[in-house]
């Protein structure tokens, strides 16, 4: 039956997605605690965030790179919504301009 395949697909997606989310949280306490492990785990939040963002701004195109530079320049000077809107405007204008 068609609908049951869709329901099973959604349940499968939900199950594995939740396992990836809950797994790290509960397994972290069982990881080794050596000096190198501590250094790696301490660095983890920053390097994950860098890895999320770097391909989106560095490998993406000129407009994205310009937007990223504007955001970086403003980041610690003005409020977050202002920074984000400035970045979006730069990227939108950049894309419109670059694609003619």
């Amino acid at each position: 039956m068609a609908e049951s395949a869709t329901a099973l697909a959604i349940m499968g997606m939900a199950l594995v997605t939740y396992l990836t989310r809950v797994g790290g949280l509960f397994l972290a306490g069982r990881l080794p605690t050596g000096r190198r492990w501590r250094a790696a785990l301490t660095a983890m939040p920053g390097v994950i965030l860098v890895s999320l963002v770097a391909p989106l701004v560095l490998g993406a195109g000129v407009a994205e790179a310009m937007g990223a530079m504007v955001v970086l320049a403003l980041a610690r000077r003005v409020a977050l919504p202002v920074v984000v809107v400035a970045g979006i405007v730069v990227v939108a204008v950049g894309r419109a301009w670059l694609t003619g």
Binding site: A9, M13, T20, M44, P45, I48
Partner: peptide
């Protein structure tokens, strides 16, 4: 909606979301 889509969807979700494991460790 056929039986093949169940496996494809589940495996795709797993692969795309594996990064959550490391994020969970970082937040623990």
């Amino acid at each position: 909606a056929d039986s093949a889509v169940v496996l494809t969807a589940t495996v795709t979700a797993l692969v795309v979301n594996l990064r959550h494991l490391m994020m969970g460790v970082a937040l623990a």
